[in-house]
Nucleic acid binder design. Sequence first.
DNA 1: CATCAATGTTGTCAGTGTCAACATATTACG
DNA 2: CGTAATATGTTGACACTGACAACATTGATG
Lengths: 203, 203
Amino acid sequence: MTSKPYHHGDLHQQILCAASALLEENNIGSLSLRAVAKKVGVSHTAPYRHFKDKESLLAGIAGLGFDELTSQMKLAVATHPSDPAAQLQEAGHRYVQVALKNPQCTQLMFGGILPCDDTYPELRASGDLAFEGLKIIIREGQVRGVFKQGDEELLALSAWSGIHGLTLLLIGGNLPEILSINVDIRPITTAITTNMLDGLRAD
Amino acid sequence: MTSKPYHHGDLHQQILCAASALLEENNIGSLSLRAVAKKVGVSHTAPYRHFKDKESLLAGIAGLGFDELTSQMKLAVATHPSDPAAQLQEAGHRYVQVALKNPQCTQLMFGGILPCDDTYPELRASGDLAFEGLKIIIREGQVRGVFKQGDEELLALSAWSGIHGLTLLLIGGNLPEILSINVDIRPITTAITTNMLDGLRAD
DNA sequence: CATCAATGTTGTCAGTGTCAACATATTACG
DNA sequence: CGTAATATGTTGACACTGACAACATTGATG
């Protein structure tokens, strides 16, 4: 699609990059296309040659976020070969870490700003891929007899829900101060994923 | 604060109500103060006599959402007296139901649109109250020996995370179609909360 | 009844997303 | 090599939005 740049040098990428940066600097509501264009040093309509509209640019940013998440899920698996329980805890920890590093992007990915339907098929595909990473862990755990039997999809959703909920509560600032981002969150994530594992373990 | 209305009859309430309705009709990005004013039948700056700015109005809407959540948590407790496990499942189910009924409001409550700091102390208080409802269930479960011992705050967070994550994934449209809103979600919430309980249960 | 604060309106402004028309650079093709 | 076509970037414009100031009106207070 963006094979070789003409005037500016890969503007498509630079817009995505600048937009991601600006997104994290302020909150999502105050991200303006014009500010992005100014940051890259082009006119205020130049982005329209690369993105249909603002929402489309946001979808691009969210896509990058899902890709990062997927990659971290794969790393979690690789870090603890043949130990699904450890993989799951590692995945949970990395999930939280990614979100803490890019809270605004995370909100964009899951905050219902982008349409749920198939307006952006590529985006949905990226999201499904991240979920797929979790399902692989669950499946392996079931095969090895570490996790309880049952609908793999449901067990994966169960695990995902726990991690996801913790993550969004953390970055959303909805937790009492004792549990907030400002404290060391490692014991928190460990406690949560441990409880989660207790719920998944085979009898 | 809004003791007796002067001209219009409790405009403060009507704006909140109209804004909530418009919020759910479209997504959150396309809610405009002017549209709210038009819907109520006042000029486009009338809302500024009742809300400092747009964000302040949004905070008001979110507050109503938290109040509803708190009320549902209390109902969940009342529905299954002296059965913390059932209370927790009931709470989870109601949590999801409230969110499905007001998805946009839920995103507003947790989507990081509003500042996390103490700009709106009343809002934070409402949110903490909902969390408090969960903690009561956990505490009762521990006292009765149904739930495992440990930091009550952490256990409550664990439970909340699971329910919260499921809820946001559902309304965010981030789940594969097999698990989406379109199917009957009762078995899903039951499966999740059951796994959760397995993780909380005392040995 | 007079005063004043609370409430609502009109007018205005800067900022935003988006489109159309135009300008320029790169590629494709004879 | 040169010209046409296309991809890319710019300028100008428009409607819409949040927000403010100045003004108008209503109700309460004395």
